[in-house]
């Protein structure tokens, strides 16, 4: 009996993830292509604007410095793109076009929840891969080798996914609350935007104005992303000395993801799809 139930959960969750991922990727090609071409274009425009060739730039600043900083900016930038993508994906998967009423009367809610969350993760993975391929192409265009080992490359990808999962899950919580109490309609997208864009923006701005303290930085997800990405491009000795900070950053994300997942599951199971009267 229990084995059958587990079999049904796995089977139905996979069916949902397969259909929804396919549907999402095909109906939102433009958004994914945007993530694919944004960064190379941005870098090209930036160099063209400075009217300096890449060779001169590398000669002045050093090759390692350039690559390290470009990739670090790239991960942070891709993080922002991923958050935006996740908000759009979740809005579509859990609200207006979600066909939840038909799904809820066809299968168990737990399976719908797992399927939808897996879809979001798969779409994000695809977007992350696209942004990375975009980055690799930009290096190839400039006829440069990608000076990063495979393990660091994968670490960057995993980092991107982990840090993007946080706003993703929080958005799920927001949206399930919206479904329960229709009047709180701003919560679905407003809450993650405030938590992951507005607050970090003020904290980062205040650093330049001299207001920020170390305690304030601890609450900024941008800061954690910075610690992790910075770690990726350090020498081995530097990496050893900062390993504790990085582990703490990962723990920070781990705790948030766990709490947010439990909360979103709780709200999703109790969600009431109501007719608008």
């Amino acid at each position: 009996m229990v084995i059958w139930e587990i079999w049904f959960i796995i089977r139905n969750s996979l069916i949902i993830a397969k259909y929804e991922t396919k549907r999402y990727l095909f109906s939102n090609r433009a958004l994914i292509l945007l993530s694919f071409c944004l960064v190379p274009t941005l870098l090209y425009v930036s160099f063209a604007g400075q009217n300096a060739s890449l060779e001169i730039y590398l000669h002045l600043n050093g090759y390692e410095w350039f690559v390290g900083h470009v990739l670090q900016i790239y991960v942070t930038f891709a993080y922002v793109v991923n958050i935006l993508v996740s908000i759009v994906v979740i809005q579509e998967l859990f609200l207006n076009e979600s066909a939840l009423e038909f799904l809820f009367t066809s299968t168990k809610r737990f399976e719908v929840f797992i399927g939808k969350v897996s879809t979001t993760a798969l779409v994000l993975l695809f977007t992350s891969l696209c942004t990375w391929i975009g980055c690799v192409i930009s290096f190839l265009i400039w006829q440069q080798e990608l000076p990063i080992s495979l393990d660091r490359f994968l670490l960057a990808l995993v980092t991107l996914l982990i840090v993007s999962t946080v706003p993703l899950i929080v958005t799920v919580v927001g949206n399930t609350l919206v479904m329960k109490h229709r009047s709180l309609s701003g919560l679905g997208s407003g809450f993650p935007i405030i938590v992951f864009f507005v607050i970090p923006f003020f904290i980062f701005s205040s650093i330049y104005l001299g207001f920020a303290t170390e305690e304030m930085l601890q609450f900024s997800t941008y800061f954690r992303v910075y610690i992790i990405t910075n770690h990726m491009f350090m020498t081995q000795e530097e990496q050893i000395s900062t390993i504790e900070e990085v582990n703490e950053a990962f723990r920070f994300f781990g705790i948030i993801i766990t709490i947010a997942l439990i909360l979103s599951w709780f709200f999703f199971m109790r969600m009431e799809t109501r007719k608008k009267d």
Binding site: Y19, E20, R23, Y24, F26, S27, N28, E92, N96, E97, S98, A99, E101, F102, T105, K275, K276
Partner: peptide
């Protein structure tokens, strides 16, 4: 055992 048709039939876009 249940089949349900809501008053507003909303479906996925792109399918």
């Amino acid at each position: 055992m249940i089949g349900f048709m809501p008053e507003e039939c909303k479906f996925h876009a792109g399918i």
